[in-house]
Design a protein around this nucleic acid. Sequence first.
DNA 1: TCGTGACTTTACGTGAACGTAAGCGTCACC
DNA 2: GGTGACGCTTACGTTCACGTAAAGTCACGA
Lengths: 147, 147
Amino acid sequence: MSTALFVSDRRSESGSTEAKQNYSIGDLSREFGVTLRTLRFYEDKGLISPERRGTTRIYSRRDRGRLQLILRGKKVGFSLEDIKEMLDLYDLRDGQITQLTVSLSKFRDQVRVLEHQRAEIDAAIADLTETCDFVEKTLEEHRAKAS
Amino acid sequence: MSTALFVSDRRSESGSTEAKQNYSIGDLSREFGVTLRTLRFYEDKGLISPERRGTTRIYSRRDRGRLQLILRGKKVGFSLEDIKEMLDLYDLRDGQITQLTVSLSKFRDQVRVLEHQRAEIDAAIADLTETCDFVEKTLEEHRAKAS
DNA sequence: TCGTGACTTTACGTGAACGTAAGCGTCACC
DNA sequence: GGTGACGCTTACGTTCACGTAAAGTCACGA
């Protein structure tokens, strides 16, 4: 399944049954499996800005969408600050072009970062696997001697 | 190049020229590219215990070996606490067998952890790559329209 | 009227692995 | 007798993404 990331959502949602327009903090918490603290934290960092009814937060569909983007951004390894930048850029909407171009560049950078991490993990796995083999062999020899 | 990890060093070092017996903190710092603070920190955490001449630390070849193991352990993703456990175990030397068996088990666990991390990174790369393709396509279309 | 649940605020705590002063000692050298 | 290299200790600071109290408001139901 593929979902847009810092790009307008590619999924069609017009057909969703009873699309709510507003959500409480608890609604989103349950739906996305994040704590209330997390949602308030994101707000504190300027990633989401729900309206208020009194002191109570009211999240719109747009806020929900932003939360989705935030969580997807985290999943692919962006920091909250990275995500904020892109969301802010998205908000400007001066020309979509700028936002798309900048984001594309960041995505490519991140792919490179991830590929690098992957290479390091591969090396570590190779190292550990080899060491495992060596240890197994040593234990084998020991057992052979002991018998 | 393969080096043992929490197993006695497999490399022959008898042929090394002028094998020093003692090292200052600065020596090890330079040789391994770690800061003085790091070496003192490892000592604080009980990973290394160099002797003292007055207040000055004197590292033996054995201390140097331990440092090597620590850094290799870090490279393959172990925490300092993990590393300490294995080193302590290694110190016991009750029977090498116990140490080898326990370490082997930890190594295998860590391989699994790393493989899991790799899978997540792969997924993230796939996701981002797909998004990049989508964005590129969008920009293409935009340019086509603009011309 | 009490309790429960959902929501709010402020604000200190966490973990990992060090960084970064501040302030001092001790040599060798010029 | 100044200067620089090298070493020491104590101890608060950093980064990130929240966790975890503590204490309060508000509405609803028995």
